[in-house]
Simulated scan of single mutants.
Amino acid sequence: MKSQRIAIAGGTGRIGRHIVEGLLEIKHRYSLEIIVLSRSQSPHISYAGTSAPVLPIDYQDLSSIQKILNDFQIDTVISTLSGTTSDPFITSQENLLRAALSVPSIRRFAPSEFSVNSEQVPSVELYQMKIPIIRSLRQVKQERPDFEYSLFSCGVFMNYLGYGNNKPEGHKAHGYMPHFPYIFDLSKRSADIPGDGEKQLVYTRAEDVGKFVAAATQLEAWEEYNEMAGDVLTMNEIVRLCEDVCGTKFDVKYNSREVILARLGPPEKVMENFFAEFLLALMDGECDVKRPINLNGLVDVKPMTVRQYLEQWWG
């Protein structure tokens, strides 16, 4: 059955906000009820002429989670929670699922993926925090065959390619995502590439991720894996696109495994280690397309390609 009453956990920022806006865009068309769960008090989110209430929540308090989901008769929970330490993140998602399963109306749950599928990248430590909830969801599915869950994967956010552009409203290139370059820094006309550049990258604009997920809520059934993409290109192909749009050659550095390994620091350097580990995963093919990119063919969403994005913000 299609989703009708949807709760987005962590929907006030970053990819969660894009998913909320994707849902608000189709809210009236499908008569949806949308609520946003947040650890902090925030104003309602308004978009496309409608809005969604933001409800403060304590993910350590199962009864309070259950009450909110029950009061709104939520049937679908989408988690966009994030964290850099395992215990709070894992516990928050597990509590969200446990509370949801005690609500009679619940029938769908999407855990916080929204990148490369976490099971594909065992070498990326930060993503291993996402594995426990997947195991829990598979166990629930065995016990409740009518329950649905889906792992939404989108690769790397295309928005990082907008860093440093000088358009009048250049900040909009990032959407709600962090402002920094990753692998490609078009402001410096440079690229920092793992290996020989022939490994593929899946790129999806964050705004399009929101549209894809919103459209997926109106599918009659959810597949376990819902893969989406704006583009699938090798890093060398992306370099050539950047050079073509910018009209100049880029300074491209091809890094060996030893060079990237040297970037790994002590455990407290969480994000620095994450970026280095992800480069190693790219080099090792862990981020290659493993399954068909099915969601593009299941919903009517026309995502932006890398060339279109580059032409908008760098052309």
Score class of each variant (00 low, 15 high):
174 H>Q: 06
158 M>R: 03
184 F>E: 06
190 S>A: 09
163 Y>D: 00
164 G>H: 09
189 R>N: 08
192 D>K: 02
185 D>V: 00
157 F>Y: 13
160 Y>N: 07
153 S>M: 13
157 F>H: 06
163 Y>V: 11
156 V>M: 12
192 D>P: 03
192 D>I: 00
177 M>E: 15
166 N>W: 01
192 D>T: 04
162 G>N: 02
183 I>P: 02
152 F>I: 10
182 Y>C: 04
182 Y>D: 12
179 H>Q: 11
152 F>P: 10
172 K>W: 12
167 K>W: 02
168 P>S: 05
176 Y>K: 11
161 L>Y: 04
156 V>R: 06
161 L>D: 08
184 F>Q: 06
186 L>R: 05
163 Y>A: 00
175 G>T: 07
156 V>I: 13
170 G>P: 14
194 P>A: 12
180 F>Q: 12
166 N>F: 01
167 K>P: 01
182 Y>Q: 03
157 F>P: 01
177 M>C: 04
158 M>E: 03
192 D>Y: 08
185 D>K: 01
187 S>E: 01
159 N>C: 01
166 N>C: 04
193 I>W: 03
178 P>A: 14
165 N>Y: 01
174 H>L: 07
152 F>K: 06
172 K>H: 08
175 G>I: 14
158 M>Q: 06
176 Y>M: 12
160 Y>Q: 03
162 G>T: 00
162 G>M: 04
170 G>T: 10
167 K>L: 10
179 H>M: 09
154 C>G: 15
186 L>P: 00
188 K>A: 07
168 P>D: 09
179 H>L: 10
156 V>Q: 12
175 G>R: 11
168 P>H: 02
188 K>G: 00
181 P>Y: 15
153 S>I: 14
180 F>H: 13
190 S>V: 03
